[in-house]
Simulated assay, not measured.
Amino acid sequence: MFYWILKYLVVGPVLKAIFRPWIVGAKNVPKTGAAILASNHLSVMDSIFLPLMIERPMSFLAKSEYFTGKGPKGWATKWFMKGTGQIPIDRSGGSASEAALNTALQVIGRGDLLGIYPEGTRSPDGRLYKGRTGIARMALVAKVPVIPVVMVDTDTMLPIGSSRPRLVRVGMVLGEPLDFSRYEGFEDDRFVLRSVTDEIMVALQRMGGQAYVDDYASKFRKQAEESGAAPTSAFS
């Protein structure tokens, strides 16, 4: 109920009126049944505008820090994330990764839509980075299609280092669902998982035209932050 109030009565109408977001390929989202929406990740605004423009409810796996902030700002962030269907996960790896997988499978098991950023973190410079194979394992275990999604200009709306959105019209392009049923039974084969993940990243690169980096975004973000070249946003 809270989700519907925020989306249709409170936050949704206001954001649509101010930013006039656009969407192409909404028909590629199935009317019923589970699916994974795999998106590039340019800004925290991605997790706001994509669910806003999709008719069906959807959930994103969000880093747990969004739900543990202190004070009025931390409370407001936690309130908004929960209200918009975000699910906290621990990204520290190991057993935490397995817990994240189980959480995702619960969402998919209900027949819902799940949003995932294959890059694992936000792009530090607008380029598209190597995908992590967790999304492939989720898709193969749950036997669901993957819909590639390209977010457009959300990084211009809220650049790294900024906490105040700019008045920019953002958009999103949804591609045709990718079917990986041919790999059924290979969800533990790391070579298959890498192949599936790479296929998803190729689809994103072709749709969005981003320059591709064959390495993980987390590595570049850490290097940039340590050098002071890229300030960390309050929403990182």
Rank of each mutant, 00 (worst) to 15 (best):
F2K: 13
F2H: 06
K7F: 05
V11T: 14
G12L: 01
L15C: 12
K16G: 14
K16A: 05
A17H: 04
I18K: 11
I23D: 07
I23N: 04
K27Q: 15
P30G: 07
K31S: 13
G33Y: 02
A34H: 05
A34E: 06
A35D: 09
I36R: 04
I36S: 03
A38W: 01
N40M: 07
V44R: 06
V44T: 13
D46H: 04
S47F: 09
S47Q: 07
S47Y: 08
L50I: 15
P51Q: 03
M53I: 04
S59Y: 01
S59P: 03
F60P: 03
A62V: 12
A62L: 05
A62G: 09
E65Q: 13
F67H: 03
F67P: 08
F67R: 03
F67Q: 08
T68W: 00
W75Y: 10
T77Y: 06
K78D: 13
W79I: 00
F80T: 05
M81W: 01
I87F: 00
I89P: 04
D90V: 05
G93Y: 01
G93V: 07
A96Q: 09
E98P: 00
L101D: 01
V107A: 00
V107G: 00
V107T: 13
R110C: 05
G111T: 02
G111I: 05
D112H: 07
L113P: 11
L114A: 06
I116M: 14
P118T: 12
E119C: 13
P124S: 12
D125Q: 09
G126N: 07
R127E: 14
R127L: 12
G131I: 00
G131V: 00
T133D: 10
A139V: 10
V141D: 09
A142V: 00
I147F: 10
P148C: 06
V150H: 09
V152S: 01
V152P: 00
D153Q: 12
T154M: 11
T154F: 10
T156K: 15
P159D: 12
S162M: 08
S163G: 05
R166A: 13
L167S: 02
L167G: 02
R169P: 01
R169N: 01
V170C: 13
V170E: 06
M172D: 02
V173A: 02
E176D: 12
F180W: 08
F180I: 09
F180L: 08
R182Y: 04
G185H: 11
D188K: 11
F191L: 14
V196T: 12
M201E: 11
L204Y: 12
M207K: 04
G208F: 04
Q210V: 09
D215A: 14
S218F: 11
F220S: 13
A224F: 10
S227F: 01
A229N: 11
A230M: 15
P231R: 05
T232H: 02
S233C: 10
S236M: 09
